[in-house]
């Protein structure tokens, strides 16, 4: 396997991203809804005066890393899950007859989903900058690292699920059972340190929490103690990269094993409507 097939898969994902205008639009709008509806709502409810952070910081600003992360979580997961769910496109058939080991399909798909997610994150970032929501203390290198690592971890989670899923028609289930819980049970909406024990443990198991935390390092809420980060930089990076590697390895193994892809091929080769 050389680089061309991987580039082909990535190129196709990017072409699709910009061709599916509604996908791109909802990727832009979704984070903004959280920022303006939930963020502004909380601030209003808790009284803008003192700031809901209790030390003068606005909850809306606390949400910025979370909504940036959200664009990647959704962008990467939807792209990765589409691998299995996109029955209409015969692309999987092209991929499985191509002359490379089948685990390369997982690698290429993971990379392309991560890149699609990173592109969406950059667009959301530009939108946030234009609206004046980017922290003055932002750290460009950490932001780059945060976007790269969070996109990759989200994409490998998506591919792991895609590789382990045999039925092709419960997209909405995945959305509700995986993507939303990962979002809610991370540090996106509240600092993990303030969560009750059970929720805090779940959040600490959720690899996505470490992505959000890394983004919090990159986009600190100026002067707020309560809205500070939960984990160290090193831990965040180690968990994200370690998890990505592990998830991708398991997905590769699953996808290479006959039982994992044979039902898929069977389904792909059935005539529609039969």
């Amino acid at each position: 396997m050389t680089y061309r097939p991987i580039l082909a898969v990535i190129e196709r994902e990017i072409v699709r991203l910009f061709r599916q205008k509604s996908r791109l639009l909802s990727a832009m709008v979704r984070p903004m809804i959280w920022l303006f509806v939930i963020g502004a709502g909380f601030d209003a409810m808790l009284g803008q005066g003192g700031g809901s952070g209790g030390d003068g910081a606005s909850y809306q600003y606390f949400l910025v890393p979370g909504v940036l992360g959200m664009s990647m979580l959704f962008g990467a997961m939807l792209a990765a899950l589409a691998t299995v769910y996109d029955k209409e496109s015969g692309v999987m058939r092209m991929l499985v007859v191509a002359p490379f080991e089948h685990y390369w399909i997982v690698v290429a798909k993971t990379l392309s989903a991560a890149i699609a997610a990173a592109i969406q994150a950059v667009l959301v970032l530009i939108l946030l900058a234009l609206l004046g929501y980017l922290s003055k203390d932002l750290s460009p290198p950490l932001l780059v690292a945060g976007i790269a690592a969070t996109s990759l971890a989200s994409a490998s989670t998506g591919m792991l699920i895609a590789a382990c899923t045999k039925t092709l028609d419960n997209f909405a289930v995945m959305m509700n059972l995986v993507i939303f819980p990962m979002f809610f049970l991370s540090g996106s909406l509240y600092p993990i340190q303030h969560l009750p024990d059970a929720l805090r443990i779940v959040a600490m198991i959720n690899p996505y929490s470490y992505g959000v935390d890394l983004l919090k390092h990159a986009l600190p809420v100026s002067g707020s103690v309560n809205f500070s980060t939960d984990f160290s930089l090193g831990l965040n990076l180690a968990v994200l990269l370690g998890f990505s590697a592990l998830a991708t390895a398991i997905a590769c193994a699953r996808f290479s094993r006959e039982t994992a892809y044979e039902p898929l091929i069977h389904m792909l080769s059935r005539k529609r409507g039969e």
């Binding site: 196709r12 072409v15 699709r16 061709r19 496109s89 058939r93 007859v97 792909l268 080769s269 059935r270």
Partner: peptide
Amino acid sequence: FQESALDRNL
């Protein structure tokens, strides 16, 4: 294949 192996969006 018996079923088309094309990307309809491309």
